[in-house]
């Protein structure tokens, strides 16, 4: 490991200032990422995992903004960076892949036109050179006959192929970091498996670090090196992916795993987490998971738990025994 990590996030707080009140979507998130590392960011809806991703690439829209904290990319502070400088990084050094490729691709431009624009946005390149780079990148993500497909429009591609185009666009400039927000959620399992296999080998080959945001523990476990589990805007557990999922120490991580049908015998009742995710507008003063937690007591209701760090980060007053 190098002295300074590729990405270092310290005490990030991204809040949305709505008329109903301040929604603390991300509340004190810290983590770091090395070159070539794949980090899985797991949580349910409203856990803040996507907002964390958007914060990293400077795409939080009003009424939301980064209230405090620091995001250092290769030692350079991104919070408060002038928009022009952020634009120079975005798409070149840090790229993003979204869940719905139909919404990210421009429907009235051919694939070749929009990829050429993406190439020329970050440096001089002739149209021919840009198209050539686009075709080579499309080939790398498994699109057959890429040069001919450049003239096709997004609607002529299937969902899986469109997501490959989106991934290829993210790869154009050989970024150091790709943030992928639920990139395979909308795809069928057989197509998802193809894309996961390609992402894994691409990260290996190019040394690109990957933040993989997903609600699917199984996908993350087969792809990521490390996992961060988020709940109500906070990281509740973080560690090496195999170790963390084999022997989770936070009751929420345990509950998420037990909710999976794959973890139970067919037809048996699943060990469900009671209740629902709390509203981010009115979080309890103590641990936000306490109302749903089987291990919660009086302390949990009043005092927010501190982070316990050994090899694993756990934010809990009563963590489960280490394996």
């Amino acid at each position: 490991m190098s002295a300074s990590p590729l990405l270092e996030v310290r005490d990030l707080r991204t809040h949305f200032f709505t008329r109903a009140g301040v929604v603390k979507a991300v509340e004190g998130v810290s983590f770091s990422l090395e070159k070539g590392e794949i980090l899985g960011l797991v949580g349910e809806s409203g856990s803040g995992k996507s907002v964390t991703g958007f914060s990293l690439i400077g795409l939080v829209d009003p009424p939301g903004r980064i209230a405090s904290g620091s995001i250092k990319f290769e030692g350079r502070e991104l919070v408060g960076l002038p928009p022009a400088e952020m634009r120079a990084l975005r798409g070149k050094r840090i790229a993003m892949v979204f869940q719905d490729p139909a919404a990210t691709l421009n429907p009235v431009l051919s694939i070749g036109q929009q990829m050429t624009l993406a190439v020329q946005a970050h440096g001089r390149a002739s149209d021919a050179a840009a198209r050539d780079l686009a075709a080579r990148t499309l080939t790398r993500v498994g699109i057959p006959d890429a040069a001919a497909r450049l003239d096709a429009y997004p609607h002529e591609f299937s969902g899986g192929m469109r997501q490959r185009v989106a991934i290829a666009t993210a790869l154009l400039h050989g970024p150091d970091l790709i943030i992928a927000d639920e990139p395979t959620t909308a795809l069928d399992v057989s197509i998802q498996a193809q894309i996961l296999a390609e992402m894994k080998s691409l990260a290996k080959e190019t040394g690109t670090a990957l933040v993989w945001i997903s609600h699917d523990l199984a996908t993350v476990s087969s792809l990521a090196d490390r996992v961060l589990v988020m709940y109500a805007g906070r990281i509740v557990e973080a560690g090496a992916v195999g170790e963390t999922l084999r022997a989770p120490r936070h009751p929420y991580t345990r509950g998420l795993l037990d909710s999976l049908p794959a973890m139970a015998r067919p037809g048996e009742k699943l060990n469900q987490i009671p209740g629902t995710t709390p509203s981010l507008l009115s979080l309890p003063p103590g641990c936000p998971f306490a109302p749903r937690c089987p291990r919660a007591d009086a302390v949990c209701a009043t005092d927010p738990p501190d982070v316990v760090t050994a090899s694993r980060l756990v934010r809990c007053h009563h963590p489960l025994e280490a394996a």
Binding site: S190, I191, G242, L257, A262
Partner: peptide, 27 residues
């Protein structure tokens, strides 16, 4: 067989190597 192989499995240890055997092609 291909469909069942495509489902990501929970990988719970380092030795449990995640290998993808995707079905080639599209519908």
């Amino acid at each position: 067989q291909g469909l069942l192989d495509s489902v990501p499995k929970l990988r719970l240890s380092i030795d449990d190597v995640a290998d993808f055997k995707p079905i080639a092609g599209e519908l």
